[in-house]
Amino acid sequence: MILLDTREFDHPLPLEMAVEAFRKLSGEEVLHMIHRREPLPLFEIITKNGGRYLSVMEAEGLWHIYITRSRTVELEHPHV
């Protein structure tokens, strides 16, 4: 799993960082993005480019987004 924590960055940097990381994903890799909000524009980019995602709000202002290109990888948020 590749971790991308974008909580400290302002728009549009988190989107740009996530798109760049998504472009580099291959095989069964999963990108775990942590963000302050749900990045809806990112989801459109992912789905238009053959990817899948799972978005989980853990707390107010804390989102976990899991992204993959794989059709077989189970995307899940660990319950800690």
Results as ranks from 00 to 15, higher is better:
3 L>E: 12
4 L>Q: 08
4 L>K: 10
6 T>A: 14
6 T>S: 14
7 R>N: 11
7 R>Q: 13
9 F>A: 15
10 D>Q: 15
10 D>S: 15
10 D>I: 13
10 D>R: 15
11 H>D: 14
11 H>K: 15
12 P>W: 11
12 P>Y: 09
13 L>N: 09
14 P>A: 09
15 L>T: 10
15 L>Q: 08
15 L>H: 11
15 L>K: 07
16 E>N: 14
16 E>I: 11
16 E>S: 13
17 M>F: 10
17 M>L: 15
17 M>D: 02
18 A>C: 06
18 A>L: 06
18 A>F: 03
18 A>N: 04
19 V>H: 00
20 E>N: 12
20 E>P: 00
21 A>M: 07
23 R>Q: 15
24 K>P: 00
25 L>P: 03
26 S>K: 14
26 S>H: 13
26 S>T: 15
27 G>P: 03
27 G>Y: 02
28 E>R: 12
28 E>A: 11
28 E>Y: 00
30 V>C: 06
30 V>A: 02
30 V>R: 01
32 H>F: 00
33 M>W: 00
34 I>Y: 09
34 I>N: 00
34 I>A: 04
36 R>C: 09
36 R>H: 14
36 R>Y: 11
37 R>A: 12
37 R>N: 11
38 E>Y: 05
39 P>F: 03
41 P>Y: 01
42 L>Y: 01
42 L>N: 02
43 F>E: 06
43 F>T: 03
44 E>M: 08
44 E>T: 14
44 E>D: 14
44 E>H: 13
45 I>W: 10
46 I>L: 10
46 I>T: 03
47 T>A: 13
47 T>F: 01
47 T>D: 06
48 K>G: 04
48 K>V: 05
48 K>A: 14
48 K>C: 09
49 N>Q: 11
49 N>I: 06
51 G>W: 00
52 R>W: 01
52 R>Q: 06
53 Y>A: 08
53 Y>H: 12
54 L>Q: 03
54 L>A: 07
54 L>H: 02
56 V>H: 08
57 M>K: 12
57 M>G: 02
58 E>K: 12
58 E>C: 06
59 A>E: 13
59 A>W: 00
59 A>K: 13
60 E>H: 12
60 E>Y: 07
61 G>P: 08
62 L>M: 08
63 W>A: 05
64 H>K: 08
66 Y>G: 02
67 I>F: 00
68 T>H: 03
68 T>F: 01
68 T>N: 03
68 T>G: 04
70 S>E: 08
70 S>T: 09
71 R>V: 08
71 R>E: 15
71 R>L: 12
72 T>H: 12
73 V>D: 03
73 V>L: 04
74 E>I: 10
75 L>M: 09
75 L>S: 08
75 L>P: 04
77 H>R: 12
77 H>V: 05
78 P>M: 04
78 P>S: 09
78 P>I: 03
80 V>H: 14
